[in-house]
């Protein structure tokens, strides 16, 4: 479980997140909406542990461990992983090697096979992110997460820049990663499988396309550094579509 309590965060001396409370239970996936600059990426980066995002109040607890001030790699080892929107290029490091690094001690026995799941075999011998298009970056990030297999996955706009042909691929891969694509087996009933899900997801989206592929449990809206709404994601999307984020201002006032 991820538990965030009264979190306050500063970036370069400026408060960018205020009184954030959030709880993602095992098996749950939430989506995060919000206008540009509202602090969505900052929230993900803070959960991941990027040191420039300075926590000045509140705490982050993951799997019962207080990670508020843990370094990035400790959080990764504890089971947090992230799919970035604009990851840096690592020159001289092949994507193939990166996949193995992500797998850590688990080791990927067949990198080609794993890459095939996101149609990425032909990129394995290219330097990580070097000259990748927006959509290619997304698939590269998903491939790394497939190898890393974290328990809590943070996705920063996984569908942006992805062409129509690949959007379903990206959607289904995320659903698989988050154990949302389940089949009932003879051994276990569907309900039992659902109950045993452990993976948690937190997805930033502008378009909501991802909702067509992943059954999301809850939607959140971040507006001006404040989580202003927490309800059915379809309803939020409709509200934003019809009225825009201005409505969030009113909701924020009402909520407080």
């Amino acid at each position: 479980m991820l538990l965030i309590e009264d979190l306050q965060v500063e970036l370069a001396g400026k408060v960018i997140l205020k009184h954030i409370d959030l709880e993602i239970k095992p098996g749950e996936t939430h989506v995060l909406f919000g206008p540009n600059g509202s602090g969505k990426t900052s929230l993900l980066m803070t959960i991941m542990g990027y040191p420039q995002y300075k926590v000045t109040g509140g705490r982050i607890v993951f799997k019962g461990v207080d990670i508020t001030h843990s370094p990035i790699n400790e959080r990764a080892r504890l089971g947090i992983g992230m799919s970035y929107q604009r990851p840096p290029t690592i020159h001289g490091l092949k994507t193939r090697q990166m996949v193995q690094l992500c797998a850590g001690d688990k080791k990927v026995s067949d990198v080609e096979e794993l890459a095939a799941r996101v149609h990425f075999e032909s990129f394995l011998d290219r330097d990580v992110n070097a000259g990748f298009s927006g959509g290619e970056i997304k698939r590269s990030e998903l491939l790394q997460l497939l190898a890393q297999d974290p328990d809590l996955m943070l996705f920063d706009e996984p569908e942006s820049g992805v062409d129509l042909e690949n959007i379903a691929l990206v959607g289904h891969t995320i659903a698989t990663l988050l154990q949302k694509e389940i089949v009932s087996t003879s051994a276990k009933s569907r309900l039992q499988v659902l109950k045993e899900r452990t993976k948690m997801g937190f997805i930033i989206t502008h378009t909501g396309y991802i909702l067509d592929y992943v059954d999301v449990d809850k939607g959140q809206v971040l507006y001006n550094g404040v989580l202003s709404c927490s309800t059915n994601p379809r309803e939020i999307l409709r509200c934003i579509g019809e009225i825009g984020y201005e409505e969030c201002v009113r909701c924020t006032i009402d909520a407080n």
Binding site: M48, G49, Y50, P51, P71, I72, N73, R75, A76, R77, G81, M82, Y84, P87, P88, I90, M98, L101, C102, G104, Q144, Q148
Partner: peptide, 8 residues
């Protein structure tokens, strides 16, 4: 940081 977030 990117590599650390992959567990290194």
């Amino acid at each position: 940081n990117y590599l650390m977030s992959r567990g290194l």
